[in-house]
């Protein structure tokens, strides 16, 4: 790890002021991803600005949603009684990720901006466009079991590894940003970029811009939401495929639906196509299958991750069927 300067700041204003002043500065949350990448020399910041003293409060919004300070730990978020009862998929997604120790350290802001686990990204002796634009990608013909089938490009197939972000994408969470130019908001589904030719550019953030909060809009249907994660061991592993799901029925018609996928996309993958194919349709297996196929039609599998197309298909259908049955048993949920 190369030497760096360290500054702890008390609020976002100070954070941005420091970031503007320093060269090659990075915001440091719990460090669970950044410190690891610095040890691998993948990240080489000259300055770390510790933003863990920023707000970690979880408050009600006027609209009836919740706003979460970016420095809230993953554990605090997952354990919050309001999240657990109103947005259970978010709790489940967080609890399905990493270990208790890491969830106690990792922050919400850091989790959103964590970087891919691609082995070639991690190993500086190999080629990676994300590390070094134009260098090439050794994953394309290498080991890519954990890699994406959706949103890929010829330069990058790395997945976004977050479970939490998948749940947030399904919830239409909004990201509150602060930068030298002031504050703005962004839908979480617009935060992460698809790689295209520049897989090094991962988030739609301006220089020195900082995530200060995540807002969950009110969403009654989320009370019966779930997150299901499939991985190579029973716990403490990244997703091969995960599905965040919720369904609202009007009689036997799907009135509203949210689906998002983890482990298959170059970014937390909101299944817009599937949702569009489901909304207003009868809640039948046939509808589910057609919707899922609509979503996965764009999949570009490679030899090592082709199984994910079938796995994602099965998981989405299973999730929809389960949500359907939950919805029919409505009052009991």
């Amino acid at each position: 790890m190369r030497a760096f300067d360290y500054h702890q700041v008390a609020d976002s204003e100070q954070a941005i002021e420091q970031a503007v002043r320093r060269r090659q500065a990075k915001y440091l949350g719990g460090g669970t991803n950044l410190v690891d990448l610095m040890r691998e020399t993948v990240e080489r910041p000259q300055t770390l600005i510790d933003v863990t003293r920023l707000s970690r409060d979880i408050d009600e919004t006027a609209e009836g949603g919740l706003i979460i300070g970016a420095a809230a730990t993953n554990a605090a978020l997952a354990g919050d009684a309001r999240i657990r009862s109103r947005y259970p998929l978010l709790s489940r997604a967080i609890l399905s990720g990493a270990s208790a120790q890491i969830r106690n350290m990792a922050t919400v802001g850091g989790n959103l901006l964590q970087r891919t686990r691609c082995a070639y990204f991690y190993d500086v002796a190999t080629r990676c466009n994300k590390r070094e634009p134009g260098a090439g990608c050794d994953a394309l013909e290498g080991f890519h079991r954990y890699h994406a089938i959706l949103g890929t490009s010829s330069s990058c197939i790395a997945t976004h590894p977050s479970d939490m972000a998948v749940a947030l994408a399904a919830l239409d969470a909004r990201i509150h940003l602060r930068g030298p130019e002031g504050e703005r908001q962004l839908a979480v589904t617009e935060l992460h970029r698809e790689p295209g030719e520049r897989s090094d550019l991962e988030a739609e953030l301006q220089p020195e811009e900082l995530i200060v909060a995540v807002e969950l809009p009110p969403l009654p249907m989320a009370v019966r939401s779930e997150y299901r994660k499939v991985r190579d061991r029973a716990s403490y592993a990244f997703a091969l495929v995960s599905v965040a799901s919720m369904v609202e029925l009007d009689g036997e018609t799907i009135q509203n639906v949210r689906l998002a996928l983890g482990g298959v996309g170059t970014r937390p993958w909101r299944a817009w196509r599937a949702e569009a194919a489901l909304r207003g349709q009868p809640a039948t297996e046939a509808t589910f299958a057609a919707a899922v196929d609509a979503e996965l039609a764009a999949a570009r599998p490679l030899p090592g991750n082709a199984f994910k197309v079938e796995l994602a298909r099965r998981l989405m259908i299973a999730a929809l069927s389960q949500r359907l049955s939950d919805a029919r048993n409505g009052g009991d949920a």
Partner: peptide, 25 residues
Amino acid sequence: TLFDPRSGRVMNPSLADYHVPVQMD
């Protein structure tokens, strides 16, 4: 252990990527 046949390099040299059973398994 993932041995890359193009480079002869072990590509999962970590306990995050080389899975051993955890308590839950």
